[in-house]
Computed example of a mutant assay.
Amino acid sequence: MNLDMHRRKRKADEAFDPPDYDYVYGIVSTGTDWYFILHSTEGIYSTSRTEYRISLTEDALEDPNESRKNVKRILEVIVGLLKDRRI
């Protein structure tokens, strides 16, 4: 195993070929709150705090349909992001 290649982090221009990527997606989660981020040359955009949330309280877990609906919404966003980045 060549450990020399792990000595330094790659710079953005080494990690991403600029002509191929005008924007990059990011996903940040606490497990209950989900944030979807778009970083482009024009700026950084993020979803709001309460838009994508999976409540794990006892009351919320009593109604599995509500939990499924929220999980489905989050997975739809993730699938959409993956489809968009598919080359």
Rank of each mutant, 00 (worst) to 15 (best):
M1C: 06
N2A: 12
N2S: 14
L3N: 06
L3F: 09
L3H: 06
L3I: 05
D4V: 05
D4Y: 09
D4S: 11
M5T: 14
M5K: 13
H6T: 00
R7H: 08
R7C: 06
K9V: 08
R10A: 09
K11E: 12
A12I: 15
D13F: 13
E14H: 03
F16C: 07
D17I: 02
P18R: 15
P19T: 09
Y21I: 06
D22N: 14
D22Y: 07
D22I: 04
Y23Q: 12
V24T: 10
V24C: 14
Y25T: 00
G26T: 05
I27R: 02
V28G: 02
V28D: 09
S29Q: 02
G31S: 06
W34R: 00
W34S: 02
W34K: 01
Y35H: 01
Y35V: 00
F36S: 01
F36R: 00
I37Y: 04
I37S: 04
I37N: 02
I37F: 00
L38T: 06
L38P: 00
L38V: 15
L38F: 02
H39D: 08
H39W: 08
H39E: 09
H39T: 11
S40Q: 08
S40G: 12
T41E: 11
G43I: 10
G43Y: 10
G43F: 08
I44A: 03
S46D: 07
S48V: 03
R49F: 07
T50A: 07
E51I: 01
Y52M: 05
R53C: 06
S55A: 13
T57F: 06
E58M: 11
E58Y: 09
D59S: 10
D59I: 03
D59K: 10
L61M: 15
L61Y: 09
E62W: 01
E62L: 13
D63F: 08
N65Y: 12
E66R: 03
E66H: 05
E66V: 11
S67D: 06
R68Q: 12
R68L: 14
K69F: 11
K69G: 06
N70D: 14
V71D: 07
R73I: 00
R73M: 01
I74P: 01
